[in-house]
Design a protein around this nucleic acid. Structure first.
Lengths: 237, 237
DNA sequence: ACCTGAACACCGTTCAAGT
DNA sequence: ACCTGAACACCGTTCAAGT
């Protein structure tokens, strides 16, 4: 993409010096493109046209790289959330929070590895704290007590950032269709209730796409259910 | 614990032969005791008094070990759930499901690494499918349509098995107290809403233990909120 | 059939040396 | 100050060889 030979070569331009910022941006790019397992110190260095050991002048170790890329993603989320178009929290905290969470979700969908890395951090990063502070501001403006606001954060859990932990993650290769069909075949006798549920989905299917597990739909359904439950408890005082 | 020298030695007793079962039980034990990062093929072999390469006669590779220990934990959960004391699903699906999920949670609390491994499996294991089938049976008996039952599984997500993805996991070493105190100090100005929330918790604190983030309490609060929301949608038809 | 030793291709990281 | 090469202590895994 960016050929290193050409007219510029004549000027004997020195390489852009490495920096923490460059290292982290390359790490995010590598994880986006090739997945988290491909993010090794050696491959990261290769990405930057440098030896692996040079990285250690800008990040303490690999854990610091993970901390760093979480920071980068959270910064993107904060940007997205700041620019969101939604009612003022004082007027409609549910709509305000809903819009913010869905904006955060859009960012995370661009960095599929982020949930896993986030979950593996033992300590709360300042960036996460800052985001939670932002969420709390909405709840507070909406009239939550500190108790209920605290519990709301726990109820939302990772959903506050726009993702949820599913019990398994059907990947792109095997679609929900294939998984469903396979189950129907193999497990008809063993898992009668799964079959019941899937047969319902097949029956409802209008356009032949087996619109099963529309992640966005499921996410919003769950989010709305939770926001509604929180509002009921808020209103009950 | 089981000394290999002694009277028995004279009988020249042959070692218990390796088996998939023994390998997986040792893997669970190792992960329980030393954490998931300590679960390497070489250390696992050491645990079994065997060379690392011998393991490959009983498991295909390390991924298969992860799949296997998930199976083991799910089997424990199925046992716990089967023995649960709760109303019949036909009479009170909420109480029936609540009791089962809390039983599953107790098992997971003995295997702290399980959520992480579960989340990393790309395909649904038969054991997870079997558990979900069990959950669906309860919902079905409770009068759910297949649509709503399907959505209920998504809303519950990992909570169906008794765990939730938090945005960070304060470890045992640094207690919630310490983390809270630290925040109050360092971040008073930057995160006003966090401070607001924490000051509330401090104020409410009666017995001086700063009863903040009681995981069990938070879990049940969230679970009840969700079950209630699902019941409302079920009743609405 | 079941286990092993040596080897291979990778890791993250340290350290002394280069410019 | 910043980068590097060689080295160390680990990984998962293969393969030919042992019993």
């Amino acid at each position: 993409m960016t050929p290193r030979t050409g007219a510029d070569e004549l000027t004997e331009q020195p390489r852009i010096p490495l920096s923490r910022r460059r290292v982290l941006r390359a790490a995010v790019g590598l994880a986006d493109r090739d997945g988290l397992d491909s993010l090794t110190m050696r491959r990261l260095a290769q990405e930057l046209d440098v030896e692996a050991m040079s990285l250690y002048h800008h990040v303490a170790n690999k854990e610091a790289v993970f901390d760093g890329i979480v920071e980068v993603v959270l910064a993107e989320i904060m940007d997205a959330v700041d620019g969101v178009d939604a009612p003022a929290p004082e007027d409609d905290w549910q709509a305000a929070l809903r819009a913010r969470i869905l904006a955060a979700r859009e960012v995370l969908l661009r960095h599929r590895w982020a949930p896993q890395v986030l979950g593996s951090r033992p300590d709360a990063s300042p960036a996460v704290i800052a985001y939670l502070d932002h969420v709390l501001a909405v709840l507070r403006a909406g009239g939550f007590s500190f108790d209920l606001a605290h519990r709301a954060l726990h109820v939302l859990g990772s959903r506050a950032l726009g993702f949820t932990q599913e019990l398994f993650q059907p990947d792109g290769a095997r679609t929900a269709d294939a998984a469903a069909a396979e189950m129907m075949e193999q497990m008809a006798g063993r898992f009668p209730n799964i079959v019941w549920m899937l047969s319902g989905a097949l029956h409802d299917d209008q356009d032949g796409t087996l619109g099963f597990c529309d992640d966005q739909f499921e996410f919003e359904f769950a989010l709305d259910l939770i926001l509604e439950g929180l509002e009921r408890r808020r209103a009950a005082g």
